[in-house]
Design a protein around this nucleic acid. Structure first.
Lengths: 128, 128
DNA sequence: CCGTATCCCTGGCGATACTG
DNA sequence: CAGTATCGCCAGGGATACGG
């Protein structure tokens, strides 16, 4: 048997559009990674967070955390000391999103080789 | 009490990198939308699929479904008739990914107003 | 109908330099 | 240390035209 997983049946197309837009916002690579890193490590200051987000530029990190702060996914705490110390931690909302994404991470980890195999087969086919 | 949701603890950084790359591949806007549309409607031909993916260009749809086919997320069936009829449906792998993403959709639908409120508050703050 | 091929241009992003 | 500001590139993606 196969359980049909039902999506929220929002009949209102306006809600539908908003959800789609929200997904678009939230489902980008760096947001997902920042989310995961903060989930794993708790509160982090900027430089540490950057180091843990392998390959991110300062610009992109700043941009990403700003947007996440605006969306209420994380809290940015500025300690008024010199040199400045800024710390980031997820809000409850951020935690809940992280939890929602968890399934996707697990899926990816679990199906890596299936994907690789499929790609190899596909590439083999159109080589012929 | 708060349940800490543990991520798959892959000690191997190579696996970690692959997972991240896979996430990056799969977590783009159009892939998610195609996934949702095919989940909701079952098998669809190209033009219908395009119509249901509001705002997608032909180029992007072609590109997206090709990549998804390569990754083993969907099956592309070409019926040798004139005019051509090409149909797309999710594989089991595609279904499982869709299921994994389902939580994110639900999250988005559920937290829309929280996000909007947060944005309004944020924008209000830095106006001052 | 379902694409591929081509042109073109916007904007995402890195690199670098500078400030509180 | 944690940003902002500026420049410059080039890839993503739309528009259009054409092919099987």
């Amino acid at each position: 048997m196969h359980i049909v997983h039902d999506y929220p049946t929002d009949l209102d197309p306006r809600v539908e559009a908003l959800v789609t837009e929200t997904i678009g916002r939230v489902a980008d690579k760096w947001t997902m990674i920042v989310l995961e890193v903060l989930t794993e490590h708790g509160e982090l200051r900027f430089s540490k967070l950057r180091a843990l987000c392998e390959g991110i530029s300062q610009k992109m990190l700043t941009q990403t955390v700003r947007q996440m702060e605006r969306d209420g996914l994380l809290i940015r705490t500025v300690h008024p000391v010199i040199p400045p110390r800024v710390e980031y931690r997820l809000t409850d909302l951020g935690d809940s999103l992280s939890e929602a994404f968890c399934g996707v991470w697990v899926w990816a980890a679990r199906n890596l080789d299936r994907i690789e195999a499929s790609r190899a087969a596909f590439d083999g086919r159109d080589a012929a």
